[in-house]
Amino acid sequence: MYSQLNIRTAAARRTALKALAATAVSVTMMALPPSQAHAQTPGRMIELIVPFPAGGTNDVVARILADGITSELGQKVVIINKPGASAAVGSSYVARSTPDGHVLLLGSQGSHSANPYLFKSLPYDPLKDFAPVALIGKVNNVLVVPSALPIRSVGEYVAYVRANPGVVNFSHAGVGTSMSLAGELFKLQTATRIVSIPYPGSAQATLAVISGEVQSMFANTTSVIQHIQAGKLRPLGVTGALRDGLLPDVKPIAEQGVPGFAMQSWFGIFAPVQTPPTVVERLSSVIRKVTTSPESAKKLEALGIATSNMSPREFQDFVYADNAAIGQLIQRSGIKPD
């Protein structure tokens, strides 16, 4: 090539080499798919999609992450709420986004494990349309009853339910939520009849228990801790295999006559499926650093979230296993969308 260019001086040679290098870079960028050509653009904004309304636990978790990621990467993270259809609206938006690491989803057990078994025409596939990036952490629920009800243990609750078959009920924020799923699992493992009562949200479901309108609830620990401390609700047992840091004196349900009982919700970050592995690994490393840092871990633990440090592959295996377990539970219980 150089003989064709007829380069005769060192200066001309340097000029020609610079031109050739620029041309090579241009050709390489044209050959790469958009997801790789524009991946990790410095300074470009990252959208973190929360598929639920602003103001809830999902929103708080997203803000903790956004602050940490912005600090680590130097890229502004903007939280965008896209609620609707039990997280399907926001999830499908991310699934269809350009896979370059600049649009991420705050996913959960509902969006990735329950939805595909509850909705026949889901506009996304939770296992095929996403690249799992990082598990933020797991969350316990707690079985609570009104303080006026003379029940002080899981064993007493089971006895009360069996003495009143089909009369005792539990409230929740919608079929497929962790509150709903925990109740259905409890019914199956204790062979009891407890009536499922859905409410528009967890706040309404909680007030229903406090007022005595319903007799029980498998509530998110964070959402009811203030009512427990105020003496309005009595905690009977936590749904995880281990005790909850927010309720250290409350035993797991599994230790109170329901062996093997375990139900935890979770939060995780997902990218579109064709996001380059290098981008996924980089984001995973940053998010894991953020969630396990003393400052962020303390904030997340205050929400009842036990943080995790899974690799993308470990998180993928976790999602597949949880999807299968929740699918089996939904099929066995026969529950349907509200």
Rank of each mutant, 00 (worst) to 15 (best):
G212Q: 13
L236G: 01
K251G: 02
I210L: 04
A262Y: 13
D249S: 12
I194E: 07
Y199M: 02
I194A: 03
S178P: 11
I253V: 03
K187Y: 07
I197E: 14
A203V: 12
I197W: 13
Y199P: 06
A205S: 09
I210T: 02
A191W: 05
G237T: 01
Q256R: 02
E255Y: 06
N220F: 14
I253T: 01
L247M: 06
T192W: 13
T239H: 07
L185G: 02
E184K: 13
A219Q: 05
A191G: 06
G237I: 09
S216E: 02
G231Q: 04
Y199E: 02
A254T: 03
G237C: 00
Q256Y: 05
G183S: 11
L181E: 00
E213P: 08
T221E: 14
A241M: 05
S202A: 13
L233V: 05
Q226D: 11
E255K: 02
V209W: 10
L188P: 14
F218G: 00
I194M: 11
I228A: 04
W266M: 02
F267W: 10
T192M: 10
N220L: 13
E213Q: 15
M263N: 02
Q264Y: 06
Q264D: 10
A230R: 04
F267R: 07
A230K: 00
A191H: 15
T221W: 04
A182R: 09
G231R: 03
P259L: 09
M217D: 15
L185D: 06
L233T: 03
M179P: 13
A208G: 02
V258K: 00
S223T: 11
Q226G: 09
A191K: 15
L236D: 04
Y199R: 06
I197N: 12
T239D: 09
E255C: 04
E184G: 08
E184V: 09
L236Y: 02
S265L: 14
R243N: 08
R234T: 14
S223E: 15
A241H: 12
P259H: 04
S223G: 10
M217Y: 15
L246D: 11
S265V: 14
D249R: 08
K232D: 09
S196M: 06
T190W: 07
G176S: 06
W266D: 15
P198G: 08
R193P: 10
A208T: 03
T177I: 04
